[in-house]
């Protein structure tokens, strides 16, 4: 089949009914925008969860008599331990500054403190594949200059399990949303086929094969999908820019992070539009172009 001919015929039949194109593209754009919003939220939440999971998961409190240089040496020693991704010495002044930052507007509550109660410590980031954190914590606790080891690992493991289960649910929901987009596309194509019913029957009468008749509808569905993907990306970018206020959320998250517009989202929506266009196109044309079903 002549590819240029198919694209040309598709563009031509699109141009002949601009109203239908408008309806099809706007309907698809809404469906893709819902899908895109969902993708963006999943991606952003996943990244936020990743930040939580790879954060300092072990806090090694140093003895009060350990000087900052010794603390930094301890951090260097700890960073060489298997299972430790990184280690950083944080003295009590820096810890207080961070704490104030985390408290945000409520930071002035700390003004009444006469002394800084926070200890000098080494923050450890553990590798995700670490098999036995309790053994590591016990080993570190026995090292010279270490006063205590505070671990948040059990809580993080529970969070990780919850996120994994949530991820499976998210994939299932994503598949359902994608099927909905395919359904919308196939209905749009079915409408286009219905509008061109007589012309298609005429083509069948003069010996047009399925490919000749189906081709322009598939190209049309893909082009409509791409236009809708661009429109949906624009809508989402506007919506996210509007909603992404710098408000703080629990766990140190920010609304701006959750509602961030992923730079690859337009490309992802474009790919989805192409795949759903082809699938929806095949489904939409279906048996309606059967050569025996002519006037």
């Amino acid at each position: 089949m002549n590819r240029r001919g198919v694209v040309g015929r598709a563009l031509r039949q699109m141009g002949e009914d601009l109203w239908l194109q408008g309806v099809a593209i706007s309907t698809l754009a809404v469906a893709l925008a819902i899908m895109g919003a969902y993708l963006a939220l999943c991606l952003n939440l996943n990244q936020a969860a990743g930040r939580l999971l790879t954060g300092p998961t072990l806090l090694v409190v140093t003895d009060p008599q350990v000087r900052p240089e010794e603390g930094r040496e301890l951090a260097a020693e700890l960073s060489r331990l298997p299972g430790v991704a990184s280690a950083a010495y944080v003295d009590q002044q820096e810890a207080m500054i961070r704490f104030r930052r985390q408290l945000g507007p409520q930071a002035d509550l700390l003004d009444d403190l006469e002394t800084n109660p926070l200890p000098n410590a080494v923050e450890l980031v553990l590798t995700p594949d670490l098999a036995a954190p309790p053994e590591l914590a016990a080993h570190i606790k026995n090292m010279a200059g270490v006063s205590d080891v505070v671990t948040g690992r059990p809580w993080l493991q529970r969070l990780e399990r919850a996120l994994r289960a949530g991820g499976e649910l998210a994939v299932a929901l994503g598949v359902l949303l994608f099927l909905a987009v395919v359904l919308v596309t196939s209905n749009t194509v079915r409408l286009a086929v219905h509008v061109r019913r007589r012309e298609l029957e005429l083509m069948a009468l003069v010996g047009a094969g399925g490919g000749y008749m189906r081709g322009p509808f598939l190209v049309e569905a893909v082009l409509q999908g791409l236009a809708a993907a661009a429109l949906a990306s624009l809508m989402l970018w506007g919506l996210f820019s509007l909603l992404a206020a710098p408000d703080a959320l629990p766990w140190g998250l920010r609304l701006g992070q959750i509602l961030a517009f992923p730079p690859l989202l337009p490309a992802a929506l474009g790919c989805l539009a192409v795949v759903s266009g082809l699938m929806g196109g095949f489904l939409g044309v279906g048996r309606s172009l059967h050569p025996r079903e002519v006037l």
Binding site: A204, L205, V206, G207, A208, G209, G210, H290, P291, R292
Partner: peptide
């Protein structure tokens, strides 16, 4: 049915 177009030509 897929050969019908060839006949119609």
């Amino acid at each position: 049915p897929r050969h019908l177009p060839l006949l119609r030509r």
